[in-house]
Design a protein around this nucleic acid. Structure first.
Length: 547
RNA sequence: GCGCCAGUAGCUCAGUUGGAUAGAGCGGGAGCCUUCUAAGCUCCAGGUCGGGGGUUCGAUUCCUCCCUGGCGCGCCA
């Protein structure tokens, strides 16, 4: 049982003795202001109605009824409108760092997910061009969310859905053909809705080399296969450079070839959720909160995009994923209602909120004070590769994760590239490297610091107490970030932790101090380094030992 | 017009799910290196939390109505 839990247990015991209702659950929080102690509770204010007394009186009685020593409390005072502020004994507080040292890379991991399966789908780009910044945000978000879930006990599968069966693929094929014919001497005629980027020229050139008998691209089937393959390879390479790996690549086309789309449509018709009108087949999405019904099968006999998407999610459910999370740009949010409506209409026991969506707002890339819109290769947008080339993988990851997904994001290339003073990524990594440096310079093996025989009570300065408390927050913070699927909480936590580490490092020397002091500070340093490393790992960012 | 998201310091954004005197980074100003990395530390300036009403001991946080911005509202994906 951790220190907070003991404190809470004592509070509950005391409150119950005063006549508080069963199930009373005191909220303990860390006050912003250190002078308000290490933990504070508003319990006395919560109980005013139930006990019919004034907050201050209740607070006094609560404290009197607690075994403060058992909870490691050195001081308890009543403050403000009725808060109780507890100060924890320095030794009792710092000794909890033993957990960090014992658990190492696993410190912070919890088991809330209980091994249940969850599929996280992200990126899911059409294989029609290089990945753009938005895909980058999805890749960073999806990967970090997956890691967080995995560290909180979920059995995670990362999945990439390839839209390889639609109109876009036809446009890609025709665009490639147009470039082939341009290379053969014709005037360039990129079709309506086609792709204008430089990369199409590369693909065409390679096709012509590999297919000397068809340099004009008359064999559209061969052109399509070639172009899709080339772009999948390019996207894979980008993702690899970004450090993202998937467990499953799911092809949209397989939903058609396996008959899953037809089966889903048949089931929806059977369920009476559809109707025909104007030579088209419609789904009654208005029965499930949509503002109008939606076409499933167009007049030309093909399906609208959300139909295979419904089939795809039936497939996920069928594979045993009772939880599914989709990371997508907010411009796709109209799909949410439709897919869920389709799943509900099937009536096969899929819960209403399935799948969950993590929608993120748009990214604006700024460089030199101006919006950067053009990539040489892609033509009309900035690619993930552009960003990695500009600022490096770690900085791209951090900058794409530092803001809540709900916020529009301004990516400042100049700031991200700066390696001197202003960059939060390097600030955090530097904290890790500086602590590593203590061990390197002192020639102290990291493994030799185990926490055994450490006099934790030595760590009683303001800076040390604040750092200790923050390090002890990590498991709770990670669990909260995972539950809310918000990696930016980890990013902000790391920045705060790094700040405390830098301050501590500057103020409290380690090497050459008297033995008990040095041993205690080495233990604290090692714990801090461990937490920084664990947090950076969650975000997919490296934790260098020297910079 | 309808729906979703946002509006907090000059700029970019956090705000621990309703707590105490609202924070960080950048930008601006002033200091700190014969001692474990100055990619660092310390201090100063900077705010009508978009606006009005409501809920209660207490609201940046919850409800409601306005205002502003982004995205979406296709037999496109």
């Amino acid at each position: 049982m951790s220190g907070v839990d003991q404190l809470r247990a004592e509070l509950v015991r005391s409150a119950r003795a005063l006549g508080a209702p069963e199930g009373v659950a005191p909220v303990l929080e860390r006050p912003r202001d250190p002078s308000h102690g290490d933990w504070a509770t508003n319990l006395a204010m919560m109980l005013t109605k139930a006990l019919g007394k004034k907050p201050a009186e209740i607070a006094r009685e609560l404290i009197a009824g607690m075994d403060l020593a058992a909870a490691g409390v050195s001081e308890a005072e009543i403050a403000g409108p009725g808060f109780i502020n507890f100060r924890i004994d320095a030794g009792a507080l710092a000794s909890q760092l033993q957990r960090v040292l014992d658990q190492g890379d696993a410190y912070g991991d919890t088991q809330g997910g209980a091994g249940k399966p969850v599929v996280v789908e992200f990126v899911s780009a059409n294989p029609t061009g290089p990945l753009h910044v938005g895909h980058g945000r999805q890749a960073a978000l999806g990967d970090a969310i997956s890691t967080m879930l995995s560290r909180t006990g979920w059995n995670v599968s990362r999945e990439f859905y390839y839209n390889d069966a639609g109109v876009q693929i036809a446009n890609l094929t025709l665009s490639t053909q147009a470039r082939l014919r341009e290379l053969a001497g014709d005037a360039l005629e990129i079709p309506e809705g086609g792709y204008h980027g430089e990369y199409i020229v590369d693909i065409a050139r390679k096709y012509a080399t590999e297919h000397p008998a068809d340099t004009r691209g008359d064999d559209l089937d061969a052109v399509r296969v070639h172009a899709v393959k080339a772009l999948r390879q390019e996207q894979d390479l980008d993702l690899k450079t970004f450090g993202v790996q998937f467990d499953v690549y799911f092809l949209e086309s397989s939903l058609y070839s396996d008959g899953q789309v037809e089966r889903t449509v048949g089931a929806l018709e059977k369920a009476g959720a559809t109707f025909e009108e104007g030579d088209a087949l419609w789904l009654r999405t208005t029965d499930y909160g949509d503002d109008k019904d939606r076409v499933m099968r167009k007049r030309d006999g093909t399906y609208t995009y959300f139909v295979p998407d419904v089939a795809y999610h039936v497939n996920k459910w069928g594979r045993g994923f009772t939880r599914a999370i989709n990371v997508q740009g907010a411009d796709h949010h109209s799909t949410v209602t439709r897919v869920r409506a389709g799943l509900q209409a099937l009536g096969v026991g899929i819960p209403q909120g399935y799948p969950e969506y993590v929608l993120h707002q748009m990214v604006t890339v700024m460089k030199g004070g101006e919006e950067m819109k053009i990539s040489k290769r892609a033509g009309s947008y900035v690619t993930v590769r552009d960003l990695i080339d500009e600022v490096g993988r770690d900085a791209v990851r951090y900058f794409l994760l530092m803001r809540k997904g709900d916020s529009q994001l301004v990516f400042d290339v100049d700031l991200a590239r700066s390696q001197s003073e202003d960059n939060p990524v390097y600030y955090i990594q530097m904290a890790h490297a500086r602590v590593s440096g203590i061990f390197r310079v002192g020639e102290i093996a990291m493994e030799s610091v185990t926490g055994a025989r450490v006099n934790w009570a030595v760590l009683d300065s303001l800076e040390e107490r604040e750092l200790v408390k923050t390090l002890l927050d990590w498991p709770r913070l990670l669990a909260g970030a995972a539950e809310s699927t918000e990696p930016h909480r980890v990013a902000n936590y790391l920045l705060e932790t790094a700040r405390l580490v830098h301050t501590w490092y500057h103020k409290h020397h380690v090497l050459g101090e008297p033995e008990p002091v040095m041993q205690a500070r080495l233990a604290l340093g090692k714990a801090a380094r461990q937490v920084l490393k664990n947090g950076l790992t969650v975000l997919g960012i490296t934790a260098p030992d020297r910079m």
